[in-house]
Design a protein around this nucleic acid. Sequence first.
DNA 1: AATCAACTGCAATGGAAGTGCATTTTTAGC
DNA 2: GCTAAAAATGCACTTCCATTGCAGTTGATT
Lengths: 137, 137
Amino acid sequence: MNTIEEVLESKDIRITAMRLLIYKFLAEKEVAVTLSDIENAFEKADRTTLYRTVKTFEDKGIVHQIDDGTGITKYALCEKGCNCEIETDLHLHFHCINCNKTICLTDHKIPQIKVPDGFVSENVNLVVKGICDKCSS
Amino acid sequence: MNTIEEVLESKDIRITAMRLLIYKFLAEKEVAVTLSDIENAFEKADRTTLYRTVKTFEDKGIVHQIDDGTGITKYALCEKGCNCEIETDLHLHFHCINCNKTICLTDHKIPQIKVPDGFVSENVNLVVKGICDKCSS
DNA sequence: AATCAACTGCAATGGAAGTGCATTTTTAGC
DNA sequence: GCTAAAAATGCACTTCCATTGCAGTTGATT
């Protein structure tokens, strides 16, 4: 169990109050969040800072970006063992069309996809849309 | 082999000069196109008209929308047998990160995806990114 | 030909992503 | 502890795409 500070330092991310707060916010969420979500949670902070903070997290590999088809980029913390950059490790995402939440199904790996001859696959984005467990019950 | 007019009429889309031209344009393309692509091809026509025409095609089920992760919506004609609205019929898309083209791999169906208990899957979006056949050779 | 509905074009809006620059905070060297 | 450099933050602004309201035009029906 590492502290947030240790996580950030291990990834060469300098520690600031802002970053600790944003990390904490992301860690508390069980769903992927938009920049606006973060913005609403930190009304005192500037959007640019939040934007760049998340980008930094992404560059350093502790956050991954999700394109769930809503047209708005969402972000989620990479969990332990999430190697977003490795093709074979990609997990899939579930987007609830009722509550509009997007959830990482970390333990649901994407099956091997065959592509035609001559095509080279580098990355796979798989989003399942439907009704989530909370909305269907 | 149906004429474009027959296709449109069979889907309850009224025939106009604009629509015939746009349909023809889409049919000639082997890749998914953005609204801007269409706009460039028809400089005399207004963006709004093109936008609404494509939306109409989409509503009536002769065009499907593709979100390939570039952040820009792309469109492609549904081919014969493409029932976009039916989950099990969804095909996958390939986005070339070199030439930026997005191709429908119509005959590559998406494998059955299992979701956790309580989740109801209605739709699946699968985009493979990499290098296309033309760019890799 | 007239009427009504549908289509088209122009203008404007809104949302999100991204950038340049000045200011503040943090780090590191003395 | 103080100072200079580097990094982070905040503000203003821009751009791009998607979308809508409304007026004018075209097309279908009688």
